[in-house]
Amino acid sequence: MDKTKAAAVLKSGVFWAVLFAVAAALCAGYLIYKKTHQQTGRFAVINVKGETLTTLPLGEDTEYTFFTERGVNTVMIKDGKVSVSYSDCKNQICVDTGSISHVGESIICAPHRLTVTVTGETDTDVVVV
């Protein structure tokens, strides 16, 4: 294809409409695929000021540091448990809470408006009598 033809194609609205549609469809397909093939198990949901920042699977050992408007929190996942290993907040309640792993449990760092909540399949290893 010579240069003028290539330019004509690039200038056509139809070309871009098709390209954008394909890109959007690919992304939508990926999102749907991910939704239906989601990892099972438990997750730590990190919320800041009520908005979910990210969701981390408890299955992988990781460490993330979150820089919020009000300060720094390091969230650590180890052996299927999540804890706040470091925080530069005043009261250190989040650090003192220790590790959590059961669905519904949460760690709250009120000074930074940060919460870590465990979600996922309901526990079968805990029986509350």
Binding site: F20, A23, A24, L26, C27, A28, Y30, L31, L53, T54, L56, Y64, T65, F66, F67
Partner: peptide, 20 residues
């Protein structure tokens, strides 16, 4: 700002939203 690659999961969503 967040120093975490966790934000990258938003890419497909951002492409769709950006186009629209």
């Amino acid at each position: 700002i967040m120093r975490t690659s966790a934000v990258l999961v938003y890419i497909p969503m951002l492409v769709i939203a950006g186009l629209a």
